[in-house]
Simulated assay, not measured.
Amino acid sequence: MTSAWRGVFPAATTQFQADQSLDIKATMRHLDRMIEAGVHGMIMLGTVGENCSLEYAEKLEVLKATVEHVGGRVPVLSGVAEYTTKLASRFAADAQKAGVDGLMVLPAMVYKADPREAVTHFRTVAKASDLPIMVYNNPVTYGVDLKPEMMADLADEPKLVAIKESSEDVRRITDLKNVCGSRYTLFCGVDDLVLESLMLGATGWISGLVNAFPAENRLLWDLAASGRWEEAVAVYRWYMPLLHLDTHVKLVQYIKLAVQECGLGTESVRAPRLTLVGDERERVLAVIRKGIADRPKPGKTA
């Protein structure tokens, strides 16, 4: 199985009403704004989409609405983040029925699997659907590190086509290339390491801040993809304080506050997350508002 996935894929927010119920219409409006800015694909129900805060039926509601609304304009992938391998397999099958184009599969939540257990989890989930799979490696947040040697072990599973690499160690891109060759499409999953990752061979970017700055994300991607590195670095330096918001434990609240400040949605989150208050809120707002004030003008780099 092969995949043509490349480019900027937002880890899209799930929008909520003030009472924390799903706001499907607002979620779809937000997707439209990002698609209109030129993103290349969409990841629903990732970390930024608050996957683990949604009920099982709500997740499928979001996916069905997204598939219908996007209507094939870009590929739609669904995060698969469940507590057991059995439940992850069930959700993978149900996501296929909902019509998504692929899956972004995480290790089982909470339990810190050893390498043998983690490999077995991905092999099992891969058998549960016919969809291509992006393997999501984020040991910083989820405590399971899918090292290059493990991905080489999984290379005989044809449905595993891509890796979202979020170890925060940019050397992993080179290590994956050296160990696995061109077997997998590599995506950077850490916003403030994207330019380094692209220079080393990643051909995709799963981004959080694109939710608030879709045009600027596309600008940075286009400059890097065309080898205009000096201009790309200039945009990257402008963007970096905002991109740092993606690597904090409260990245969902930070990104959603940026989305609200940019007029693309609301900051509402679902408990146990709470919207920001006090000094923390003012500090994050200062970063966001400076980014908005200094953002690259259309047709120009920073």
Results as ranks from 00 to 15, higher is better:
residue 120 T to N: 08
residue 120 T to Q: 13
residue 120 T to P: 02
residue 121 H to C: 14
residue 122 F to Y: 07
residue 124 T to M: 13
residue 124 T to Q: 09
residue 125 V to R: 12
residue 127 K to Y: 13
residue 128 A to F: 15
residue 129 S to Y: 13
residue 130 D to K: 15
residue 133 I to R: 03
residue 135 V to Y: 07
residue 136 Y to E: 12
residue 137 N to G: 10
residue 137 N to H: 12
residue 139 P to S: 14
residue 140 V to K: 08
residue 140 V to D: 06
residue 142 Y to L: 09
residue 145 D to N: 11
residue 145 D to M: 06
residue 146 L to R: 07
residue 146 L to T: 07
residue 147 K to T: 12
residue 149 E to C: 03
residue 150 M to K: 02
residue 151 M to V: 08
residue 152 A to D: 11
residue 154 L to G: 06
residue 154 L to A: 07
residue 155 A to S: 15
residue 155 A to P: 04
residue 158 P to Q: 04
residue 158 P to G: 07
residue 159 K to S: 11
residue 159 K to I: 01
residue 160 L to I: 15
residue 160 L to S: 07
residue 161 V to A: 02
residue 161 V to M: 03
residue 161 V to S: 02
residue 165 E to D: 03
residue 167 S to V: 05
residue 167 S to K: 04
residue 170 V to R: 01
residue 170 V to E: 07
residue 170 V to K: 02
residue 173 I to R: 00
residue 174 T to H: 03
residue 174 T to I: 09
residue 174 T to D: 10
residue 176 L to Y: 00
residue 176 L to W: 00
residue 179 V to A: 01
residue 180 C to W: 01
residue 182 S to D: 15
residue 182 S to N: 11
residue 183 R to Y: 05
residue 183 R to L: 02
residue 183 R to T: 10
residue 184 Y to H: 03
residue 184 Y to S: 00
residue 184 Y to C: 01
residue 185 T to I: 03
residue 185 T to F: 00
residue 185 T to G: 00
residue 187 F to D: 01
residue 187 F to Y: 13
residue 189 G to D: 00
residue 189 G to S: 00
residue 190 V to A: 08
residue 193 L to F: 08
residue 194 V to D: 00
residue 194 V to W: 01
residue 195 L to W: 09
residue 196 E to C: 06
residue 196 E to L: 13
residue 197 S to T: 04
residue 197 S to C: 15
residue 198 L to T: 01
residue 199 M to S: 14
residue 200 L to W: 10
residue 201 G to C: 10
residue 202 A to T: 05
residue 202 A to P: 01
residue 205 W to N: 07
residue 205 W to I: 09
residue 208 G to C: 10
residue 209 L to V: 05
residue 210 V to L: 06
residue 210 V to S: 15
residue 211 N to G: 04
residue 212 A to G: 11
residue 212 A to L: 03
residue 213 F to K: 02
residue 214 P to H: 05
residue 214 P to L: 06
residue 214 P to I: 04
residue 215 A to N: 09
residue 216 E to M: 03
residue 217 N to P: 04
residue 219 L to N: 06
residue 219 L to C: 08
residue 219 L to P: 07
residue 221 W to D: 10
residue 221 W to S: 11
residue 222 D to F: 12
residue 222 D to I: 11
residue 222 D to R: 12
residue 225 A to L: 05
residue 226 S to V: 01
residue 228 R to W: 05
residue 228 R to Y: 09
residue 229 W to H: 06
residue 231 E to M: 06
residue 232 A to W: 13
residue 232 A to G: 07
residue 233 V to L: 15
residue 233 V to G: 06
residue 234 A to I: 04
residue 236 Y to A: 15
residue 238 W to D: 01
residue 239 Y to P: 02
residue 240 M to D: 09
residue 240 M to T: 13
residue 241 P to A: 03
residue 242 L to T: 04
residue 243 L to P: 02
residue 243 L to C: 15
residue 243 L to K: 12
residue 244 H to A: 12
residue 246 D to A: 13
residue 247 T to V: 14
residue 250 K to I: 04
residue 251 L to D: 14
residue 251 L to W: 12
residue 253 Q to E: 13
residue 253 Q to C: 08
residue 254 Y to W: 09
residue 255 I to K: 12
residue 255 I to C: 13
residue 256 K to H: 11
residue 256 K to T: 05
residue 258 A to R: 09
residue 258 A to K: 10
residue 260 Q to L: 15
residue 260 Q to D: 12
residue 261 E to N: 05
residue 261 E to Y: 13
residue 263 G to D: 11
residue 264 L to E: 08
